[in-house]
Simulated assay, not measured.
Amino acid sequence: MVVSPKEVYHTLRQFQSLAEVERESFGYTSLSIPERAWYWRRGFLSRASVLYDFETHGHEDYLTDYQRYVRTRGINGRFGYALDNKLMLYGLLSEFSDRLPELHGIVSDGTFRSISLDGKRGPTRPAIEWAEDLDADETVVVKWVIGGGGHSVLLLTRTGEGYRVNGERVPRDDLCERFEKMDDYIVTGFSQQSEYADAIYPEATNTVRAVTMWDSERDEPFLARAIHRIGTDETKPMDNWSQGGLGALIDPETGELGEAVSYPENGERTWRTDHPDTGARIEGVEIPGWEAVREGLLEVADSVPYLPYVGWDLVVTGTGEFEIIEANNYPGVKSLQVHGPLCADERVERFYREHGVR
């Protein structure tokens, strides 16, 4: 097999990413160098000793850090770039526009350019002028067109007194300065979460991360795993799990939430049945209309068979209703596998083997 210089370059970049994550988390555990080496030889970063329950499951059924960073990146091939670009995602899923937040436009260098999937658009003008025309108490999402993980995401709200960005008041001049520094940020509508998610924690948008894979034997997608991310006072208005949020496993058949776990601190995983800030129950809560949500997402995944591996971020907006706010080309797995190894499912194991990951 001939390996292109570009493939070599990207592989080296992924090894570099692995090394950077290991270096950043070196103080995360108290493991000795020989103990860390045990994990390295098996493809894991040393943080896996805290994240995963190897005593119960062993290590063979877990997707390793090496496999995730280096091997899964190429599953979708060249088509994966369409998932890396949030604007391209709208074109990719244009058939399912009702499953996407409204698309407003692009902000770059202080300028707002209106965009519409139906070919109709408004004028190009200074971004601050566009912001001034937002309806009172209207919230829009402004996020970098490339990248994920909740980074560079702003929730912009027009208020009677001015503006709020991620819940904090921002003077007009400061907002104008922020717009000037933006380079290709997409602007979409805000997905309003359903009542059940508001009841758990109302100060963040609590999203579902669902990973779909393609079953080659049945020639159809399947739901490999889904978790519900839940924000806290540490993460609001986002729900980023590694920054202090919670993650609860979703029963794929019933939509019932299991115990929620936070990103391990001090070398231990902390499991909760209720929310630490609101006291609301988490374990046992059922997502309303889950079957319709699951089947609706699989219908979307079925429309893009050339993308066999996708990590979908969605907001359940009502009973059986949802909006896709992001799609990921090679999704992270630590928040998924903290609930148990992915490859214990024979369909998942077969999928990864077919794509040269395992």
Rank of each mutant, 00 (worst) to 15 (best):
L314F: 04
V357D: 06
L45K: 09
L154F: 15
L175F: 08
E132K: 13
G119S: 07
R42I: 05
Q243L: 15
E234F: 12
W144P: 00
I250D: 01
Y28M: 09
V333K: 07
I146Q: 10
Q243A: 15
T188S: 15
S108K: 01
L249T: 08
P308N: 00
Y66N: 08
V170I: 15
R23S: 13
A226C: 10
A37P: 00
V300G: 01
I250Y: 02
L156I: 08
T273C: 02
D118G: 06
L155E: 04
N266L: 11
G160F: 10
G247F: 03
A136T: 14
F54E: 05
A224V: 09
T124C: 11
H151L: 14
V141I: 14
L342D: 01
A37H: 12
F190M: 11
Y163A: 07
G189T: 08
A344P: 00
I186G: 03
Y69H: 11
T11M: 12
T56L: 10
E132R: 15
D53S: 01
A327L: 05
I250E: 00
A210I: 04
E138F: 10
L336D: 01
T124V: 14
R71D: 09
A37I: 13
R158L: 02
D98K: 04
S303F: 05
M1V: 15
L257Q: 03
N76I: 02
F44V: 02
V140M: 07
L100M: 14
R350A: 14
R41I: 10
T273K: 15
R178N: 00
F15D: 06
G122S: 12
R23M: 12
F15G: 02
P101L: 05
P221I: 09
I186P: 04
P252S: 11
S216I: 13
L155P: 00
Y39Q: 04
E129T: 12
W241P: 00
S303Y: 09
E60I: 10
H104K: 13
L336M: 14
F322I: 03
Y309F: 15
R71S: 11
E168N: 13
S30F: 08
